[in-house]
Amino acid sequence: MTYCLGIKVREGLVAIADTRITSGTDTTVKKKVYVDQREQHSIFIMTSGLRSVRDKAVIYFKELIDEGTEYNKLYKAVNAFGEQVRRVGREDRAALEQSGFKFNLTTIIGGQLRDDEEHKMFLLYSEGNWVEMDEGSPFVIIGNSGHGKPILQRTLHNDSSMELALKTGFLSFDSTRAAANDVDFPIDVVLYRKNSFNLIQHRYEKQDLENISAQWACELKKSLQNISNDWMQTAFDKMNTYKTQANEV
């Protein structure tokens, strides 16, 4: 499974991707983020799904750019990548399905190109269609998404800082890692500040962040202890009454 998270706030973009690849009992580490940084052209692509489909679609898309194809707005690049996914589908879907594999690739694409008025982020489906992330949906997770959503939903909004977005994003990943054995370190982080046309990449190993993970676990326990018990008393009073009555019988 995969954990890829994209966050769009007013200040910029934050992307986090784990690197674990599981095949049967074997696990390997492979990068799940493709970055293309050129003059007034900043784009990152994160994927969840069949690795073979991902690699082929990314190579086809990279070839277009290397041969001189230019996109002035990010949605046009998203359309182009979607067409490469469909191309791979035309070439490989039948063979994959005959072998028992579902043709599957979900993609987060973010960045800013020359004529974009601001940074953008899109969720692209296997069929090549997409939706754009906006103020009402400041984040999207692909892959193993269930465990990491609550903290993001409770914390993030459009005016959140990039620092808070990265902190919350890591804790979301950490919650997923703790609950799923197919998501793990290292994690790749991509940061993009609005109108900078400069993508920053950084990889965190487990030893870099295990103290933050331990601190978060400790803070959670403290917070739980600080929550009032008064609201529970009625229920426990009923239980104690039932226990007393049962002893008297």
Results as ranks from 00 to 15, higher is better:
18 D>N: 02
100 G>Y: 07
170 F>L: 11
243 K>L: 13
33 V>M: 15
53 V>G: 04
23 S>D: 12
112 Q>I: 01
118 E>Q: 05
127 E>L: 03
123 L>V: 08
249 V>K: 15
241 T>E: 14
18 D>A: 04
242 Y>K: 12
79 N>Y: 15
243 K>G: 02
66 D>N: 08
12 G>I: 09
246 A>D: 08
195 N>A: 08
172 S>M: 00
216 W>A: 15
97 E>C: 05
153 Q>K: 09
137 S>Y: 06
33 V>K: 08
179 A>K: 14
145 S>C: 11
80 A>Q: 09
171 L>C: 09
221 K>P: 04
32 K>P: 07
6 G>L: 05
63 E>G: 14
30 K>F: 04
112 Q>K: 03
98 Q>Y: 06
95 A>W: 09
225 Q>Y: 11
165 A>V: 01
100 G>T: 06
148 G>H: 02
156 L>F: 08
71 Y>F: 15
243 K>S: 09
54 R>T: 11
110 G>Y: 08
152 L>C: 08
80 A>V: 12
126 S>D: 07
94 A>T: 12
101 F>C: 01
15 A>K: 03
157 H>I: 04
245 Q>S: 10
209 L>R: 07
22 T>S: 15
209 L>H: 01
249 V>L: 15
206 K>E: 07
137 S>P: 02
222 K>N: 06
165 A>Y: 01
166 L>E: 15
190 V>G: 06
225 Q>E: 15
98 Q>N: 10
153 Q>R: 14
97 E>D: 04
21 I>L: 15
59 I>W: 06
105 L>E: 04
12 G>C: 00
163 E>W: 02
120 K>D: 02
23 S>I: 14
193 R>C: 05
228 S>D: 13
